[in-house]
């Protein structure tokens, strides 16, 4: 555990900080303070932590459990319960294929298979070169434009296997 005790010169008292000196921990701490370090804010804190760091590693989860005064097992249990949190680093690009019912009946499964075949990875995995992570969603609520695919956070309508492969190829070639 890389949490160190440091002396806060200005206030003349000892405070706990993350030993790495990584600024992002400070930002996260400020965010936690906004929630008064309330234990029920755990999920919001984890959202913020993932936004800052990209994924939740052990060190980060320990920091959160320390600050929120929660058992580490509880924090880990919550972080692994929800699909949205990832404990592994993601690729440079993310491609989320919506597999909601509307997208499914309009051929999202074919779009998915095309990407899996092209990248040779399965849903939930990242290419070995850490370039692209392939993810699925259980409905992003964009059923009117099904099938929907989300490239790096931007929703794209009416996906086809050909269209998706074009975007993927741009990523693999750049």
């Amino acid at each position: 555990m890389k949490i160190a005790t440091m002396r806060n010169e200005a206030e003349g008292r000892r405070v706990m900080q993350h030993a790495s000196g990584d600024k992002r921990f400070k930002i996260l701490e400020v965010f936690m303070k906004k929630y008064q370090f309330r234990q029920d804010s755990l999920i919001e804190i984890l959202h913020k932590a993932q936004e800052l760091f990209g994924y939740l590693d052990d060190d980060l989860l320990l920091f959160v459990s320390y600050k929120l005064k929660l058992p580490p097992s509880r924090v880990y249990g919550v972080a692994t319960f929800y699909h949205f949190f990832t404990l592994k680093p993601q690729g440079k690009h993310t491609c989320v294929v919506c597999l909601g019912t509307a997208c499914y009946v309009k051929g999202a499964d074919k779009v998915m298979s095309a990407i899996e075949a092209e990248l040779k990875i399965k849903a939930g995995e990242t290419t070995p070169d850490k370039n692209i992570s392939l993810l699925t969603a259980r409905c992003i609520g964009a059923c009117g434009i099904a099938p929907a695919v989300v490239y790096d956070g931007t929703v794209s309508p009416r996906a086809t296997p050909e269209g998706v492969l074009k975007t993927i190829k741009q990523w693999t070639e750049s």
């Binding site: 909601g100 019912t101 259980r138 409905c139 059923c143």
Partner: peptide, 11 residues
Amino acid sequence: DEGDPGAFMDR
């Protein structure tokens, strides 16, 4: 928490 796939009324 509109979770039903294929539903987007609440959104």
